[in-house]
Amino acid sequence: MRCSINRSHLALAVCVVVLVGCSGTRDRASQKTASMPALALVNDVCSLCHGLTGESVSPSFPKLAGQQKDYLKAQLADFKGHVRMDKATTQYMWGFTHLTDAQIADLADYFSKQRPMQAESETPDARGEWIFRHGVPAAGIAQCSACHGSEGQGQGRTPRVAGQHAAYLISQIKVFQQADLRERGDLESQIAHTLSDADAEAVAHYMARLGP
């Protein structure tokens, strides 16, 4: 993760807020973001990790392009309220403290309207496809398509998974296996907690190759 040297001082300050959480600078920069239009936030802040159109390059950061609007709003609200407890995301929450409801709505609207996440080009995983469409009945695991849609497009507060980074999907499955880390993760935890590591990787790679 790098901040371009030709970014404004505000962008650099917010980058420090989001990635490090240094208390003094964090509070001042976060307060400034409360008055920024959503498109300015996308350009100066969100794009640093997620890309200008939400098509992130690094699997450490989820793709937001074409994501479900209601899901994005719920997740931004969770970041603002500091209720995401998994270690990989707690360091980023401080940068969201001063987001307004209007900014959250506008950011969700912007990313949801971008061209949907672009699928990886590798051959779909046969085991992953079976799990996605049929689950693992012997282990009591339901099919992913029941909630995420037949093509992984998501619905409402259920996120789009088609075209998402496989590595990110794997990391989220592991998070959902620890029910206390995600306030909104009760259903996912029930579905994913018995998924083996091999099956989690298989279905993640299949979902990453879904979509346009």
Rank of each mutant, 00 (worst) to 15 (best):
T90N: 05
I131H: 01
E129A: 14
I104Q: 01
P62G: 02
W94L: 06
F61P: 03
T89M: 12
M85V: 02
Q75G: 01
M93I: 13
V136M: 10
I141T: 04
Q118K: 15
A142Q: 14
G95V: 08
A126D: 13
F61V: 10
Q68C: 11
Q155P: 00
G140F: 09
G81R: 14
Q114A: 00
A126C: 00
G95M: 10
G95T: 08
G135H: 04
P124F: 02
Q103V: 04
E122W: 01
K80R: 15
A65W: 03
D78T: 01
A146R: 14
F61Y: 15
K63N: 06
A138G: 10
A105F: 09
G149D: 03
A146V: 15
A88D: 13
T100N: 11
D109S: 13
T123N: 05
W94I: 01
T123M: 05
A105T: 14
L99C: 07
K113P: 10
T123G: 00
A105D: 15
L76A: 09
G154E: 05
Q91L: 13
T123E: 08
R84W: 06
K73Q: 14
S121G: 04
G156L: 09
Y92N: 06
D109A: 12
F79N: 03
K87H: 06
T123V: 05
S121E: 00
E151N: 14
C147Q: 06
H148K: 11
A105Q: 09
K87S: 12
L107I: 15
R84T: 07
G149C: 07
F79C: 06
G140H: 04
H98E: 14
D101H: 12
L107T: 03
H98W: 12
G140M: 04
L99A: 03
T89R: 13
H148S: 01
F79R: 07
K69V: 10
W130Y: 15
R84E: 07
K73N: 04
T90L: 11
A65C: 08
A146E: 14
A77W: 01
D106K: 15
S112Q: 02
D106Y: 10
E120Q: 03
A102D: 13
G140C: 07
T123C: 02
G95H: 10
M117Q: 05
T97Y: 10
K73W: 04
